[in-house]
């Protein structure tokens, strides 16, 4: 499998091509420094992202509370995660770092509040 990607390790943004070889290792071309292949292989084998989003909050100044996954989650599970997070309803007050959803999708990763919101 061959994939084109832009490196985001630094602002240069090298256009790289990654190709999986028969022995399961990867060939990376187009990079201009050695950090490129490392990023490219991680993106091929286990791409992860922190998912920042919001949940419904009651009795607060605003109707939405910003939250994020406390750790990066597998990229392929972002939409499944969104479906679950969108069901969450919390009550004010909430403090930054409070867990609003435990063990998201059984990944062992919590969803936490990213701001403090007082009762209103």
């Amino acid at each position: 499998m061959k994939k084109n990607m832009t490196c985001i390790v630094c602002p240069v943004g090298c256009q790289m091509t990654v190709e999986e070889k028969n022995d399961g290792t990867y060939d990376v071309t187009g990079n201009t420094c050695k950090r490129g292949p490392k990023y490219a292989v991680a993106e091929m084998t286990n791409p992860t992202r922190v998912v920042p989003t919001t949940v419904v909050i009651k009795n607060a100044m605003l109707p939405r509370l910003p939250v994020k996954t406390a750790q990066p989650i597998p990229k392929g599970q972002i939409f499944d995660a969104m479906a679950v997070i969108n069901q969450v309803v919390v009550q004010a007050p909430v403090k930054t770092g409070d867990v609003v959803l435990k063990n998201l999708l059984g990944l062992g990763i919590d969803v936490v509040a990213t701001r403090t919101m007082n009762k209103f």
Partner: peptide, 10 residues
């Protein structure tokens, strides 16, 4: 560290 906007503000 990588913060969200509200965390940075707080």
């Amino acid at each position: 560290e990588e913060l969200t906007g509200p965390e940075y503000a707080e």
